[in-house]
Amino acid sequence: MTPVLRLLARRLGISLIVLIGVSMLVFGIARVIPGDPARIALGPNASTEQIAKLRASLHLDESIFVQYGHFIKDLSRGDLGISLYTNRPVTTDIAQFLPATLELVLVAGVLMIAIGLPLGIWSARFRGRFADHIIRLVSLLGVSAPSFVWAVILMLLFAYYLPLFPIAGRITDTYTIESITGFLLIDTLIAGNFQAFLNAAWHIVLPAFALALSGIGQAARLTRANMIETWDKPYIEMAQAYGYAPARIANRFAFKPSMIPSLTIIGLDFAAMLGNAFLVEAVFAWPGLSRYGVAVILRKDLNAIIGTVLIISAAFLIVNLIIDLLIAFLNPRIRYSQRDVK
């Protein structure tokens, strides 16, 4: 087995354990918080018999261990139960709302990498000069406010005072796009409706930026710090002594080794966006998982809470897995971490 495959297997195993742990934790917490889900679901006029019947059908009258057993049994069949809020299977709800959130987070992640890393490289390359000071100031600003604050600020500035972007939503209502992947940016292209694609892209700019800003700042600062550390390494002086162009030294010889320590943090930032997306979605009325998540938490919709949390955790773990593989790909010292080279 190659080291990368072994790494993958180990990470998958760890991820599975984490997921089981998360499920236990959320399962326990959801049942410990006060309030009877059945009573909330049925409303104040429900009779005691009706409530007792619903409780029995949800296994709420049994011990928590038995309930967890039922949950795991259902989960193994891909069944997360029925949401008491929408009266639909939780999996159906998640399948409907998750793509919008994922789309937002992915676009924000791309922005974070596409803007944050070049800013960091520039900053390191021209350290101590004007460009560096500006970039450091901006990235510090980005890091120092949470994304929902940025959401409000960006919305006020660029949608309200300067109406350059739409104030809310994913796409203008006049477009009807058949949902294939659930990602509007992809579905519009599949439908061949370029106008709708531009409309969807136009809608996603502000929320994605609001979500990405702290990540951009973080990525820029990390890249700068790591690049400056790398700059003192003999191999950079060697590259200079061989007369490579400064841009090439920065973008290639210094950037690649510097990227490896930054990537883990960037991966964590990326995953953290999944959580931050909840608040940004709320500000921009983005029809994603957040509205659903908040609604089900307030209604103590047990199945839906657990389903949402599990999905978010799984996404978090997948992102981290990808980052680990990326690091292994970039860093030969991990790829060849064993003795038997060739």
């Binding site: 003999p234 191999y235 002594a241 061989y242 690649k256 010292r333």
Partner: peptide, 19 residues
């Protein structure tokens, strides 16, 4: 540099880029 003049450094292992 690297064409008509070149340089050898103290520590060969750290003078080569590890990635």
């Amino acid at each position: 540099r690297g064409t008509r003049m070149s340089m050898i450094f103290q520590d060969p292992t750290s003078a080569l880029n590890p990635v």
